[in-house]
Design a protein around this nucleic acid. Structure first.
Lengths: 177, 177
DNA sequence: ACCTGAACACCGTTCAAGT
DNA sequence: ACCTGAACACCGTTCAAGT
C-alpha cells in the first residue's frame, strides 16, 4: 500500500475524530472509519491513542477547550456566562452531549472539567466541595435545558435564563455574596 | 436443537434484559448474550422486539414503573418525594442511568416519562409547558446529584435535600403556591 | 519508528428453511 | 406461529511482519 507523505499526529487523529462525531454522532466514528478518513489502516491509529475510550476523552477535551471561562465579573456573572457558552457549544454540536454524559460517568474526566469551571467559585471563597457541587448543579441544569428541553420542544432562551438565575441564587453559600 | 418448553414472552425478554443490564451494564446485554440467557438463538428475540432500541426502551419503562408517584401532599412535597425515589432507584442500579440519559435524547421516551411525573404539577395549576420544564429541571438535578456528584465523591444526602428544596422553590410559578 | 495484513472474538440484523 | 442455521456487514483490538 502507498504510505502517507507525513506520519500521523495525535492532533490529526483527534481533530478528524471530532469532526466525524460532530457531523455524524459517536456511532459514525468507528476506529475503522476514522482510519479510512485518515488514509491509514485501522491498527495505525493505535500508535497515537491507547484505545477508543482515550480517543473520545481527547475529543471531548478538545471541544471544551473552546469554552472559555469569563475573566471578569462577580462569580455569579462568570458562571452564568460560562453556562451560556456551554449551551452555545452543545447547540452547535448536540452530538457532543452523548460524549459529555458518558464522560460524567468516568471519574477522571468529570473531575478535570469540574476543576476548570470551579475557578470563579474558589476565587469567591467557596470551598472545593461546594465549588464542585455548584458546577455539577449548573452544568446538569444547562445540559438538561439544552437537550432534554429541546427534545420536548420547550427549549427557550428566556426560560433558560430564568432558571439559570434561580439556580445561581440557590447556590450562594450561607453568609456568602 | 432442543426447543424451549414454553414460547418466549415479551415480559420474559424484557425482564431478563433488565437484570443483565442491572448487573453488568448495557454493554453486557448484547442481543446474542440475551438470547443465550433465554435459551434461544439470537433471531428468536426479534419475534418479541423490533430491535435493540425498542428493547432498551421497554427495559427503562419497566424500571421506572417501580418509581411510584406519591399520591398525597402539596406539589412540592410530591415532587420532592418522587425525586428521592428516583434517586433511590438510580443508586441501587447506577447502570440504568446510561439508559436514562440515552433515552432523553429520544423524543418519545423523554416525553412519556415527563408526562407521568407532571401530574402533581398539572394538578397544582402549572400549564403543560411549565410542568415539563419543572420535571426536566428536577430530574436533571437528581441525575446530576446522584451520579456525577457520586463520581466526584461529593455525594451527600443533606446536600441533595438542600439543593432539591432550593430548586423546587425556584420553580414555583409567579403568583403560584 | 511507523505502518500493513491478517486474524480473533465479537456485534446487530435478515431471511430462507425447518417444526 | 415459533424458532434455527447460516449469512451479511460490521465492530475494537492484537500482533507478527514488512519498510
Amino acid at each position: 500500500m502507498a504510505r502517507r507523505a507525513t506520519p500521523l499526529t495525535t492532533q490529526e487523529v483527534v481533530r478528524t475524530a471530532r469532526s466525524m462525531i460532530e457531523h455524524g454522532g459517536v456511532e459514525a466514528c468507528s476506529m475503522r472509519a476514522l482510519a479510512t478518513e485518515l488514509g491509514v489502516q485501522a491498527p495505525a491509529v493505535y500508535r497515537r491513542v491507547k484505545d477508543k475510550g482515550e480517543l473520545l476523552g481527547l475529543v471531548l477535551a478538545d471541544s471544551f477547550a473552546e469554552v472559555e471561562l469569563p475573566a471578569e465579573g462577580t462569580w455569579q456573572e462568570r458562571m452564568a456566562e460560562l453556562m451560556r457558552r456551554l449551551r452555545r457549544l452543545l447547540r452547535k454540536h448536540p452530538t457532543l452531549l452523548t460524549l459529555y454524559l458518558a464522560s460524567h460517568l468516568r471519574q477522571t474526566d468529570a473531575a478535570r472539567l469540574a476543576e476548570v469551571a470551579s475557578a470563579p467559585l474558589l476565587d469567591a471563597g467557596f470551598d472545593a466541595e461546594g465549588a464542585s457541587f455548584a458546577v455539577t448543579v449548573l452544568s446538569m441544569y444547562t445540559l438538561g435545558m439544552t437537550t432534554v428541553a429541546a427534545a420536548l420542544a420547550i427549549d427557550d432562551d428566556e426560560m433558560f435564563e430564568y432558571g439559570l438565575t434561580k439556580m445561581i441564587e440557590g447556590l450562594t453559600p450561607a453568609g456568602g455574596t
